[in-house]
Protein backbone atom coordinates (compact mmCIF):
# COMPACT_ATOMS: atom_id res chain seq x y z
CA UNK A 1 0.00 0.00 0.00
CA UNK A 2 2.77 2.43 1.01
CA UNK A 3 4.57 1.57 -2.21
CA UNK A 4 1.51 2.45 -4.21
CA UNK A 5 1.21 5.81 -2.48
CA UNK A 6 4.88 6.56 -3.01
CA UNK A 7 4.49 5.61 -6.65
CA UNK A 8 1.52 7.93 -7.08
CA UNK A 9 3.34 10.81 -5.39
CA UNK A 10 6.48 10.28 -7.48
CA UNK A 11 4.47 10.28 -10.69
CA UNK A 12 2.33 13.15 -9.48
CA UNK A 13 5.24 15.42 -8.66
CA UNK A 14 7.14 14.55 -11.87
CA UNK A 15 4.15 15.27 -14.07
CA UNK A 16 3.32 18.34 -12.00
CA UNK A 17 6.42 19.97 -13.52
CA UNK A 18 4.90 19.27 -16.92
CA UNK A 19 1.51 20.62 -15.81
CA UNK A 20 3.18 23.87 -14.69
CA UNK A 21 4.49 24.21 -18.24
CA UNK A 22 1.03 23.67 -19.67
CA UNK A 23 -0.39 26.12 -17.16
CA UNK A 24 1.82 28.78 -18.77
CA UNK A 25 0.89 28.05 -22.36
CA UNK A 26 -2.78 27.19 -21.84
CA UNK A 27 -3.90 29.30 -18.90
CA UNK A 28 -1.62 32.31 -19.04
CA UNK A 29 -1.07 32.58 -22.79
CA UNK A 30 -4.36 30.97 -23.81
CA UNK A 31 -2.39 28.86 -26.29
CA UNK A 32 -3.40 25.19 -26.74
CA UNK A 33 0.17 24.05 -27.28
CA UNK A 34 0.32 20.52 -28.66
CA UNK A 35 4.09 20.67 -29.06
CA UNK A 36 4.29 19.38 -25.46
CA UNK A 37 3.40 15.91 -26.78
CA UNK A 38 6.78 16.12 -28.51
CA UNK A 39 8.80 18.05 -25.94
CA UNK A 40 8.08 15.58 -23.13
CA UNK A 41 9.85 12.73 -25.00
CA UNK A 42 12.39 15.27 -26.30
CA UNK A 43 13.50 15.88 -22.73
CA UNK A 44 13.67 12.13 -22.23
CA UNK A 45 15.62 11.59 -25.44
CA UNK A 46 18.17 14.30 -24.71
CA UNK A 47 18.63 13.12 -21.15
CA UNK A 48 18.99 9.46 -22.14
CA UNK A 49 21.42 10.17 -24.96
CA UNK A 50 23.63 12.27 -22.68
CA UNK A 51 23.48 9.79 -19.80
CA UNK A 52 24.59 7.02 -22.13
CA UNK A 53 27.56 9.24 -23.02
CA UNK A 54 28.39 9.47 -19.32
CA UNK A 55 27.37 13.08 -18.76
CA UNK A 56 26.44 14.10 -15.21
CA UNK A 57 22.68 13.41 -14.87
CA UNK A 58 21.98 16.83 -13.34
CA UNK A 59 23.57 18.51 -16.34
CA UNK A 60 21.42 16.24 -18.51
CA UNK A 61 18.34 17.74 -16.87
CA UNK A 62 19.47 21.27 -17.61
CA UNK A 63 20.27 20.48 -21.24
CA UNK A 64 16.96 18.67 -21.61
CA UNK A 65 15.06 21.70 -20.29
CA UNK A 66 16.97 23.98 -22.67
CA UNK A 67 16.16 21.71 -25.62
CA UNK A 68 12.48 21.93 -24.67
CA UNK A 69 12.71 25.71 -24.53
CA UNK A 70 14.22 25.69 -28.01
CA UNK A 71 11.35 23.55 -29.30
CA UNK A 72 8.92 26.02 -27.67
CA UNK A 73 10.63 28.82 -29.59
CA UNK A 74 10.08 26.85 -32.79
CA UNK A 75 6.33 26.66 -32.10
CA UNK A 76 6.39 30.37 -31.32
CA UNK A 77 8.25 31.04 -34.55
CA UNK A 78 5.64 29.11 -36.56
CA UNK A 79 2.81 30.99 -34.89
CA UNK A 80 4.21 34.50 -34.47
CA UNK A 81 6.47 34.91 -37.47
CA UNK A 82 4.88 32.59 -40.01
CA UNK A 83 1.34 33.36 -38.77
CA UNK A 84 0.31 29.69 -38.56
CA UNK A 85 -2.66 28.99 -36.26
CA UNK A 86 -1.74 28.16 -32.65
CA UNK A 87 -3.05 24.58 -32.67
CA UNK A 88 -1.40 23.79 -36.01
CA UNK A 89 1.91 25.36 -34.94
CA UNK A 90 2.03 22.97 -31.99
CA UNK A 91 1.09 19.99 -34.15
CA UNK A 92 3.87 20.85 -36.61
CA UNK A 93 6.50 21.00 -33.86
CA UNK A 94 5.17 17.81 -32.30
CA UNK A 95 5.36 16.00 -35.65
CA UNK A 96 8.85 17.27 -36.38
CA UNK A 97 9.98 16.28 -32.89
CA UNK A 98 8.88 12.70 -33.45
CA UNK A 99 11.66 12.36 -36.06
CA UNK A 100 14.10 14.48 -34.07
CA UNK A 101 13.59 12.49 -30.85
CA UNK A 102 14.19 9.29 -32.77
CA UNK A 103 17.44 10.75 -34.13
CA UNK A 104 18.63 11.97 -30.75
CA UNK A 105 17.97 8.70 -28.98
CA UNK A 106 18.97 6.57 -31.96
CA UNK A 107 16.20 4.06 -31.35
CA UNK A 108 12.51 4.10 -30.40
CA UNK A 109 13.15 2.31 -27.12
CA UNK A 110 16.12 2.42 -24.77
CA UNK A 111 16.42 0.65 -21.46
CA UNK A 112 19.04 1.81 -19.00
CA UNK A 113 20.61 -0.66 -16.60
CA UNK A 114 23.42 0.65 -14.42
CA UNK A 115 23.82 4.15 -15.76
CA UNK A 116 24.19 7.04 -13.37
CA UNK A 117 20.97 8.96 -12.82
CA UNK A 118 20.07 11.66 -10.32
CA UNK A 119 18.50 8.90 -8.23
CA UNK A 120 21.59 6.72 -7.82
CA UNK A 121 24.32 9.31 -7.90
CA UNK A 122 24.83 9.17 -4.14
CA UNK A 123 24.60 6.15 -1.91
CA UNK A 124 21.99 6.62 0.77
CA UNK A 125 21.34 4.71 3.98
CA UNK A 126 19.03 1.75 3.52
CA UNK A 127 16.46 3.23 5.88
CA UNK A 128 15.56 6.11 3.58
CA UNK A 129 16.29 4.37 0.29
CA UNK A 130 12.60 3.72 -0.59
CA UNK A 131 11.78 7.40 -0.11
CA UNK A 132 14.91 8.85 -1.64
CA UNK A 133 13.67 9.20 -5.25
CA UNK A 134 10.45 10.80 -4.03
CA UNK A 135 12.42 13.33 -1.99
CA UNK A 136 14.55 14.29 -4.98
CA UNK A 137 11.47 14.55 -7.19
CA UNK A 138 9.64 16.74 -4.68
CA UNK A 139 12.66 19.01 -4.38
CA UNK A 140 12.95 19.40 -8.17
CA UNK A 141 9.28 20.14 -8.68
CA UNK A 142 9.11 22.54 -5.75
CA UNK A 143 12.17 24.39 -7.04
CA UNK A 144 10.51 24.59 -10.47
CA UNK A 145 7.28 25.84 -8.91
CA UNK A 146 8.99 28.43 -6.73
CA UNK A 147 11.14 29.71 -9.59
CA UNK A 148 8.01 30.04 -11.70
CA UNK A 149 6.21 31.89 -8.89
CA UNK A 150 9.16 34.24 -8.60
CA UNK A 151 9.28 34.78 -12.34
CA UNK A 152 5.58 35.67 -12.49
CA UNK A 153 6.25 38.46 -9.99
CA UNK A 154 8.94 40.09 -12.14
CA UNK A 155 8.37 42.78 -14.75
CA UNK A 156 8.83 40.21 -17.47
CA UNK A 157 6.35 37.92 -15.71
CA UNK A 158 3.80 40.74 -15.46
CA UNK A 159 4.13 41.29 -19.18
CA UNK A 160 3.64 37.57 -19.83
CA UNK A 161 0.45 37.56 -17.78
CA UNK A 162 -0.92 40.60 -19.58
CA UNK A 163 0.02 39.15 -22.98
CA UNK A 164 -2.36 36.23 -22.47
CA UNK A 165 -5.07 38.37 -20.96
CA UNK A 166 -4.91 41.32 -23.33
CA UNK A 167 -2.34 41.32 -26.14
CA UNK A 168 -3.47 44.82 -27.09
CA UNK A 169 -2.25 46.10 -23.74
CA UNK A 170 1.24 44.76 -24.45
CA UNK A 171 1.21 46.71 -27.72
CA UNK A 172 0.20 49.91 -25.96
CA UNK A 173 3.10 49.38 -23.57
CA UNK A 174 5.41 49.52 -26.56
CA UNK A 175 6.40 45.87 -26.36
CA UNK A 176 6.15 43.16 -29.01
CA UNK A 177 3.42 40.68 -27.97
CA UNK A 178 4.87 38.08 -30.35
CA UNK A 179 8.17 38.12 -28.48
CA UNK A 180 6.39 37.66 -25.15
CA UNK A 181 4.43 34.73 -26.55
CA UNK A 182 7.65 33.06 -27.69
CA UNK A 183 9.20 33.56 -24.24
CA UNK A 184 6.13 31.98 -22.63
CA UNK A 185 6.17 29.00 -24.96
CA UNK A 186 9.89 28.53 -24.31
CA UNK A 187 9.41 28.47 -20.53
CA UNK A 188 6.40 26.17 -20.81
CA UNK A 189 8.08 23.65 -23.07
CA UNK A 190 11.29 23.86 -21.04
CA UNK A 191 9.34 22.70 -17.99
CA UNK A 192 7.66 19.91 -19.96
CA UNK A 193 11.00 18.64 -21.28
CA UNK A 194 12.43 18.79 -17.76
CA UNK A 195 9.57 16.58 -16.59
CA UNK A 196 10.27 14.17 -19.45
CA UNK A 197 13.93 13.99 -18.45
CA UNK A 198 13.23 13.40 -14.74
CA UNK A 199 10.67 10.76 -15.64
CA UNK A 200 12.98 8.80 -17.92
CA UNK A 201 15.76 8.86 -15.32
CA UNK A 202 13.29 7.53 -12.77
CA UNK A 203 11.87 4.71 -14.91
CA UNK A 204 15.26 4.04 -16.56
CA UNK A 205 13.64 3.92 -19.94
CA UNK A 206 13.14 6.03 -23.05
CA UNK A 207 10.11 5.48 -25.25
CA UNK A 208 9.69 7.62 -28.35
CA UNK A 209 5.89 7.53 -28.04
CA UNK A 210 5.77 8.38 -24.34
CA UNK A 211 4.52 11.88 -25.14
CA UNK A 212 1.12 10.85 -26.49
CA UNK A 213 -1.60 12.54 -24.45
CA UNK A 214 0.75 14.90 -22.59
CA UNK A 215 -1.29 18.01 -23.37
CA UNK A 216 -4.60 16.45 -22.42
CA UNK A 217 -3.15 15.02 -19.19
CA UNK A 218 -1.62 18.36 -18.27
CA UNK A 219 -4.78 20.23 -19.10
CA UNK A 220 -6.82 17.83 -16.99
CA UNK A 221 -4.53 18.49 -14.02
CA UNK A 222 -4.58 22.26 -14.57
CA UNK A 223 -8.36 22.29 -14.79
CA UNK A 224 -8.87 19.96 -11.80
CA UNK A 225 -6.48 22.00 -9.69
CA UNK A 226 -7.59 25.47 -10.67
CA UNK A 227 -11.30 24.72 -10.41
CA UNK A 228 -10.96 23.00 -7.02
CA UNK A 229 -9.17 25.99 -5.57
CA UNK A 230 -10.87 28.69 -7.66
CA UNK A 231 -12.35 30.35 -4.61
CA UNK A 232 -9.47 29.68 -2.23
CA UNK A 233 -7.57 32.92 -2.72
CA UNK A 234 -4.78 31.94 -0.33
CA UNK A 235 -3.73 28.99 -2.51
CA UNK A 236 -1.32 29.99 -5.28
CA UNK A 237 -2.47 28.80 -8.69
CA UNK A 238 0.83 27.03 -9.24
CA UNK A 239 0.21 25.11 -6.01
CA UNK A 240 -3.26 24.12 -7.16
CA UNK A 241 -1.81 22.89 -10.46
CA UNK A 242 0.64 20.65 -8.59
CA UNK A 243 -2.15 19.29 -6.39
CA UNK A 244 -4.32 18.86 -9.48
CA UNK A 245 -1.72 16.57 -11.02
CA UNK A 246 -1.38 14.50 -7.85
CA UNK A 247 -5.16 14.07 -7.71
CA UNK A 248 -5.16 13.18 -11.35
CA UNK A 249 -2.51 10.50 -10.89
CA UNK A 250 -4.48 9.14 -7.94
CA UNK A 251 -7.59 8.82 -10.10
CA UNK A 252 -5.62 7.03 -12.81
CA UNK A 253 -4.09 4.70 -10.26
CA UNK A 254 -7.52 3.86 -8.88
CA UNK A 255 -8.76 3.23 -12.40
CA UNK A 256 -5.91 0.81 -13.06
CA UNK A 257 -6.40 -1.03 -9.79
CA UNK A 258 -10.05 -1.44 -10.65
CA UNK A 259 -8.98 -3.61 -13.57
CA UNK A 260 -8.36 -1.27 -16.50
CA UNK A 261 -5.33 -1.83 -18.70
CA UNK A 262 -2.55 0.70 -19.25
CA UNK A 263 -3.67 0.96 -22.86
CA UNK A 264 -7.11 2.10 -21.68
CA UNK A 265 -5.54 5.17 -20.11
CA UNK A 266 -6.07 7.54 -23.03
CA UNK A 267 -9.77 6.76 -22.85
CA UNK A 268 -9.76 7.39 -19.09
CA UNK A 269 -7.85 10.64 -19.56
CA UNK A 270 -10.32 11.89 -22.12
CA UNK A 271 -13.30 10.93 -19.98
CA UNK A 272 -11.84 12.59 -16.92
CA UNK A 273 -11.02 15.65 -18.97
CA UNK A 274 -14.51 16.02 -20.38
CA UNK A 275 -16.05 15.53 -16.93
CA UNK A 276 -13.94 18.24 -15.32
CA UNK A 277 -14.49 20.59 -18.25
CA UNK A 278 -18.26 20.15 -18.15
CA UNK A 279 -18.29 20.38 -14.34
CA UNK A 280 -16.42 23.69 -14.35
CA UNK A 281 -18.64 25.08 -17.09
CA UNK A 282 -21.67 24.02 -15.09
CA UNK A 283 -20.47 25.62 -11.87
CA UNK A 284 -19.59 28.79 -13.76
CA UNK A 285 -23.09 29.01 -15.16
CA UNK A 286 -24.64 28.43 -11.77
CA UNK A 287 -22.60 31.20 -10.19
CA UNK A 288 -22.29 33.77 -12.93
CA UNK A 289 -20.63 36.30 -10.65
CA UNK A 290 -18.05 33.94 -9.25
CA UNK A 291 -14.65 35.50 -9.73
CA UNK A 292 -12.40 32.87 -11.24
CA UNK A 293 -8.79 33.68 -10.64
CA UNK A 294 -6.37 33.03 -13.40
CA UNK A 295 -2.98 33.18 -11.75
Amino acid sequence: MLNIIIGILEQGFIFAIMALGIYISYKILDFPDLSVDGTFPLGAAVSTALILKGVNPWICLVVAALSGALAGCLTGFFHVKLKIKDLLSGILTMTALYSINYRIAGSPNIFMMNEKTIFNLFTVPDSIRPYFPLIIIIVISLVAKILLDMYLKTKSGFLLKSAGDNAGLVVTLGENPGKIKIIGLAIGNGLVALAGAVNCQRVMQFDVSSGVGTLVMGLAAVIIGTSLFARAKWVKVTTSVVIGMILYKTCISLAISSGLRASDMNLVITTLFVITLVATEYSKRRKPHAQTKKY
Binding site: T154, S162, N166
Partner: peptide, 21 residues
Protein backbone atom coordinates in the same frame (compact mmCIF):
# COMPACT_ATOMS: atom_id res chain seq x y z
CA UNK B 1 -5.24 43.54 -17.61
CA UNK B 2 -8.36 42.21 -15.89
CA UNK B 3 -6.73 39.39 -13.96
CA UNK B 4 -4.11 41.62 -12.36
CA UNK B 5 -4.56 44.08 -9.51
CA UNK B 6 -4.75 47.86 -9.86
CA UNK B 7 -1.30 48.12 -8.30
CA UNK B 8 0.14 45.56 -10.74
CA UNK B 9 -1.50 47.27 -13.71
CA UNK B 10 -0.15 50.69 -12.75
CA UNK B 11 3.34 49.29 -12.11
CA UNK B 12 3.24 47.60 -15.50
CA UNK B 13 2.31 50.84 -17.26
CA UNK B 14 4.79 52.86 -15.23
CA UNK B 15 7.62 50.75 -16.64
CA UNK B 16 6.86 51.65 -20.25
CA UNK B 17 9.97 52.57 -22.29
CA UNK B 18 12.11 50.76 -19.72
CA UNK B 19 13.12 47.13 -19.84
CA UNK B 20 10.65 44.47 -18.71
CA UNK B 21 13.37 42.42 -17.06
Amino acid sequence: CSSMTIFENLSLADNKLKSYN
